[in-house]
C-alpha cells in the first residue's frame, strides 16, 4: 500500500510539491501584490522605489532571520528589537569614542550582539527557563540600558566613512540589501547542508528524539539565541549607519515585524518547521505592504490594520495547506 502512495505522489507534477513548500503561499501573495501595485500606481516599479522597499525589508528581514532560527528550535526571542537598539548604540560609541576603525565596527557590533544573545541562550538552554519570560526580561534590560547609556540622546554624527554600510550601493543595490541577501544565502546553506542546521530541525521537531540521537540540544538551542542577537545587532548597526546616528529608538517595532515575517514565511511557532526563503519573502511582503499604502495614499494609520489582516489570512491559508496535505 505504501508503494502505491509513493508512486502516485511522484507521478503528480511538481505543483503539489510547490504547494507543500512552507513558503509557497507567501510567494504567490507577494507576486500578486506586486502585480496589483504596478498596475494601480505609476511609480511602484521604478528603480528608486524598488530599492527603497528592499532596503526597508532588509533591516527587519535581518532581525527576522535570527528570529526564524529561534522559532525553529521551538523558542521565541522578544528581545531582538531592544538588542538591535543596544548594539547600535554600543557600536556607535565604539566608532565615535573608542576610535575603532569604521570597517571593523560592523563585525565588532555583531560580536556584541552575539554576546547579549548568548545571555538569552544561557538562561533558556542552560537553565531551561521559559524563553518567553527570559527574553521579556532581557528586552526590558536591553532597552533600559540603551537609555541609561545615551540619556535618551542620539550619538551623532557617525561620519562619512561609516555611512557606506547604510547608504552605499553595490551595482545599484543598497548595501543593507546585499548584506541581507548574503546572510540569507548563508543561512539557507547552513540549515540545509550542515550538521548544526539539521540539528535545529531535529531539536524543534522532536526534542526527545534529538537527545536520543546524541545531539547536543542545549548547545544548538544556545547557538540559535546567540545568533538571533547577532542578526539583530547587524540590523541595528546598519540602520545607525544609514541614519548617520546611533539613536536610542533603533529597533523599536522590529520585534513584531520580525515575528510576522517569519510566520508569514511559514515558520511554525511550535518549532521544527520553517524556511529562510519564506522569511525573506515575508520581510519583503511587509515592506511592499507599507510601501503600497503610501503609494495608494491610504492613511498610514491603516497600515497596521492591513498587516494584521494579512497575517490572519496567511494563517488561514497555512491551515488549508496543512489540511489538504
Amino acid at each position: 500500500m505504501g508503494d502505491k502512495m509513493n508512486t502516485s505522489r511522484a507521478s503528480l507534477f511538481s505543483l503539489q510539491r510547490f504547494w507543500r513548500w512552507e513558503a509557497s503561499g507567501i510567494l504567490v501573495a507577494l507576486v500578486a501584490l506586486a502585480l496589483l501595485l504596478s498596475i494601480a500606481t505609476d511609480n511602484f516599479m521604478s528603480s528608486y522605489n524598488i530599492s527603497a522597499v528592499a532596503r526597508q525589508a532588509a533591516f527587519v528581514g535581518l532581525v527576522a532571520l535570527g528570529q526564524t532560527l529561534v522559532l525553529m528550535v521551538g523558542g521565541i526571542d522578544l528581545s531582538v528589537g531592544a538588542a538591535a537598539g543596544l548594539s547600535a548604540i554600543v557600536g556607535s560609541i565604539a566608532l565615535t569614542q573608542w576610535g575603532i576603525h569604521p570597517w571593523l565596527i560592523v563585525p565588532f557590533t555583531m560580536g556584541f550582539g552575539l554576546l547579549i544573545g548568548a545571555i538569552n541562550g544561557a538562561f533558556v538552554a542552560g537553565l531551561r527557563l521559559n524563553p518567553f519570560i527570559v527574553t521579556l526580561a532581557t528586552w526590558e534590560i536591553f532597552a533600559g540600558l540603551t537609555l541609561v547609556i545615551t540619556g535618551g540622546y542620539p550619538i551623532r554624527p557617525l561620519g562619512e566613512a561609516f555611512g557606506v554600510f547604510g547608504k552605499g550601493e553595490i551595482f545599484g543595490v543598497p548595501v543593507p540589501v546585499v548584506i541581507f541577501l548574503v546572510a540569507g544565502a548563508i543561512l539557507i546553506w547552513v540549515l540545509g547542508q550542515t550538521r548544526f542546521g539539521r540539528n535545529i530541525f531535529a531539536l524543534g521537531g522532536n526534542r526527545d528524539a534529538a537527545v536520543l540521537a546524541g545531539i547536543r540540544v542545549r548547545w544548538v538551542e544556545f547557538a540559535a539565541f546567540a545568533l538571533a542577537g547577532m542578526f539583530a545587532a547587524l540590523a541595528g548597526i546598519l540602520y545607525a549607519s544609514r541614519m548617520d546616528a546611533g539613536q536610542p529608538s533603533v529597533g523599536e517595532g522590529w520585534l513584531m515585524g520580525a515575528i510576522t515575517a517569519a510566520i508569514l514565511g511559514g515558520t511554525s511557532l511550535r518549532g521544527g518547521q520553517g524556511s529562510i526563503v519564506g522569511t525573506i519573502l515575508g520581510a519583503l511582503l511587509l515592506a511592499v505592504l507599507a510601501n503600497g499604502t503610501v503609494l495608494l495614499n491610504v492613511s498610514g494609520f491603516w497600515q497596521r490594520v492591513i498587516v494584521g489582516a494579512v497575517v490572519l489570512v496567511a494563517v488561514l491559508v497555512d491551515l488549508l495547506r496543512r489540511r489538504s496535505n
Binding site: 539539521r198 531535529a202 521537531g205 526527545d208 528524539a209 534529538a210 546524541g214 545531539i215 521544527g272
Partner: peptide, 24 residues
C-alpha cells in the same frame, strides 16, 4: 542502541535523515 516502543522520530524530516540523525 535502543529502538524504543514509543515512536521517537522527527516527523517533519525524511526517513533517511531520521535514520542518520546526529550521525550524518
Amino acid at each position: 542502541a535502543i529502538a524504543p516502543q514509543e515512536i521517537n522520530l522527527v516527523p517533519a524530516l525524511s526517513v533517511a535523515e531520521n535514520i542518520m540523525l546526529g550521525a550524518q
